[in-house]
């Protein structure tokens, strides 16, 4: 019986004055300090007793963390502390990266999205993270401040397991950067929850494509949520959609390949059997929707 406490456990709230100070503090208190942004996951896990940090490090007011900027030549940068509602409302996101807004809209409730962040969603590394797929297929790169200063970390290979990433002690993700997307791109995120809105994903399918010089005429990217220990990219399905002319059969074949690629578990939200079928059916639907949006 897992019985969470009524409130949060005792800890110290720390607000460093700079990123360097924050990184130093986190490294010095390795295993007992944790940075937080919106806290929507952090405080739930602390109340649950899964996380027992002595220090909770508020980094969201540090340099650039709250900014969202777009440059037509370099792309979009979303600061780690920018909440999801701001991302959804951003005219630049809506115009140039609508898939991100579409995915973010499916996260929990409006009041949760006032606090939840894209970077937080990524750092939590939940296999069910709704915005992670969009970030992967659009080539998102994390800006990380560590003990040795700034560096960039691609999302490929970032996720190691549920809740586990390649981040090191002292690392603070300060932003996520997206390249300028190819002309004519289109995307779709379909989330299947138990309720119409607000639930966690039983299965989430992200599909993204843009015109390219390929046998199908498109380059396709896919990502699947809640069907593997980490967000899953079904590469074979992507190849099928890119490498063959698009017909109903091609789509069905790709959907089947996506289904075959995933390895979900049985849990209270859904059985592995159901999830696999849903990956197939929703991949088919997402790809079809993307094709409609491409035209």
């Amino acid at each position: 019986m897992h019985n969470p406490r009524p409130g949060l456990p005792e800890f110290d709230y720390v607000r460093p004055a700079s990123l360097s100070e924050a990184s130093r503090f986190l490294a010095e208190h390795q295993g007992e300090a944790r940075p937080f942004m919106g806290g929507t996951d952090t405080f739930v896990r602390m109340r649950d007793g899964f996380w027992k940090e002595k220090y909770i490090v508020d980094v969201k007011r540090l340099d650039g963390m709250g900014d969202i900027t777009f440059d037509p030549s370099t792309g979009l940068t979303i600061g780690a502390a920018v909440n999801m509602n701001r991302v959804i409302d951003s005219p630049e996101v809506q115009e140039h990266y609508p898939l991100l807004a579409e995915a973010a809209k499916t996260v929990a409730s409006f009041q949760l999205r006032s606090r939840a962040t894209i970077v937080g969603n990524i750092c939590n590394a939940s296999p069910a993270g709704d915005t992670i797929g969009a970030c992967i297929v659009m080539g998102g790169v994390l800006k990380v401040h560590g003990l040795d200063g700034e560096r960039e970390v691609p999302l490929t290979g970032f996720f190691v397991g549920p809740g586990k990433t390649v981040l090191k002690p002292g690392d603070i993700v300060t932003a996520i950067r997206f390249p300028v997307l190819p002309q004519g791109h289109a995307g779709r995120y379909i989330k299947l929850g138990r309720n119409a809105l607000s639930d966690l994903a039983i299965v989430g399918v992200t599909a993204f494509a843009y015109p390219d010089d390929t046998p199908s005429g498109y380059r396709f990217k896919l990502a699947l949520a809640s069907v593997a220990p980490v967000p899953l990219v079904p590469e074979k399905a992507e190849e099928i959609l890119t490498g063959k002319p698009i017909t109903d059969e091609t789509i069905a074949e790709a959907a089947q390949a996506a289904m075959d690629a995933c390895n979900p578990i049985d849990d209270v939200r859904g059985s592995a059997r159901y999830r696999k079928y849903m990956v197939r059916n929703l991949t088919r639907r997402a790809v079809t929707d993307v094709l409609n949006r491409l035209q």
Binding site: N195, A196, L197, V268
Partner: peptide
């Protein structure tokens, strides 16, 4: 449509709003 206490070995496996879903305004 939604509700069931998932009792396994006598223990409820969905003892929170995260996994004991009830109808929301959107349902």
């Amino acid at each position: 449509i939604f509700e069931e206490m998932k009792l396994v070995g006598g223990e409820m496996k969905n003892p929170s709003f995260v996994d004991y879903r009830i109808a929301t305004a959107a349902d």
